[in-house]
């Protein structure tokens, strides 16, 4: 990918040379073996030379006029490349609050983390789980088996996010379970026949300097957090915008006509952490709390 960085108005703005690349690729055979050997090795006849000369002239003239009509190169209005953490969380403050509340990392600091309004059997099931946990029964969701949280829990953190931004695609990596979301900005649509995944299928576009994302095809078992579940009709829209020099605001709306009584609206503020690096997180390395898919501990720890 040929990406040129141009410093504009105090920030990096990226220009993308993919158009030229595509033009070149269109004229290139997929493999050299696809071209008949005689054409590659034999000298052209005088007739072919004349035709080629004429075509070259036409191409030259067309090239001149195309210079003024060249399609606009895709650009990106922001530069969010780098490491981001939930603002004001233990990852942001790094003051010992993580150790003070293991397993509840950042809970006291997480901004605007609202809970969804469940309904029907999704509500009664979750209430039963919370009641059992209050009574001391260990209730785990799939995360305890090192299954990725996926969307919408992707934004719950608690660890570092890494944004890699190009004009046609933005990747967001989450340290926890080494998840990557890919947000396609090239105009593609969701393929209703594609398999649902934990993070779903995300397509986006820019509205000024705000990134609008539509995410569908989310697995039914990705969960909403703390044992709350959703249906296969879950759909998510997000708006991401920069609200400070190193501050992003993520506004997320989760809809699910079967599981939610109303859209679940939540906000997450991310702060850029210059100098922070991504840590490797291999969940299966030493998972001594592993559960099976029914949330029953397989280690025996705390299972009584």
């Amino acid at each position: 990918m040929n990406v040129g960085a141009v410093l504009m108005a105090g920030e990096f703005r990226f220009t993308f040379k993919a158009v030229d690349r595509v033009r070149a690729d269109e004229n290139r055979p997929a493999r050299m073996n696809d071209v008949p050997l005689s054409i590659r090795t034999s000298k052209p006849s005088w007739k072919i030379r004349v035709i080629a000369f004429c075509l070259a002239g036409i191409a030259f003239a067309g090239g001149v006029s195309a210079t003024t009509k060249a399609p606009k190169e895709p650009t990106t209005p922001t530069n969010w490349n780098g490491i981001w953490v939930i603002a004001d969380s233990f990852m942001d403050k790094q003051d010992g609050t993580f150790l003070a509340t293991p397993g509840r990392a950042g809970e006291d600091d997480e901004p605007a983390m609202s809970d969804p309004t469940l309904k029907d059997e999704y509500l009664t099931k979750h209430q039963a789980l919370l009641k059992a946990e209050e009574a001391g029964t260990r209730i785990d969701d799939t995360g305890a088996a090192c299954v990725p949280q996926g969307m919408p829990r992707f934004w719950h953190g608690p660890y570092a996010f890494e944004i890699t931004q190009t004009p046609l695609q933005i990747n967001i990596y989450q340290e926890w379970n080494e998840q990557t979301r890919r947000i396609y900005l090239d105009g593609r649509k969701h393929n209703p026949d594609a398999d649902p995944t934990f993070n779903g299928h995300s397509v986006g576009h820019w509205q000024g300097r705000e990134l609008l994302i539509d995410t569908g095809l989310i697995r039914e078992d990705s969960g909403l957090g703390a044992g709350a579940t959703h249906s296969d009709q879950i759909h998510i829209t997000e708006k991401i915008k920069q609200v400070g020099a190193n501050l992003l605001l993520v506004q997320m709306i989760v809809t699910d006509p079967k599981a939610l009584a109303e859209p679940w609206v939540s906000e997450y503020r991310l702060r850029r952490k210059s100098g922070m690096e991504i840590e490797e997180y291999v969940c299966t390395e030493n998972n001594r709390n592993i559960t099976n898919t029914n949330a029953v501990s397989q280690s025996g720890i705390g299972s009584k």
Partner: peptide, 17 residues
Amino acid sequence: LLPASLVTAHHSFAMFD
């Protein structure tokens, strides 16, 4: 006290007092 919110934890901590 533990609030019953959608906390971020790898696993339940109900086994701890």
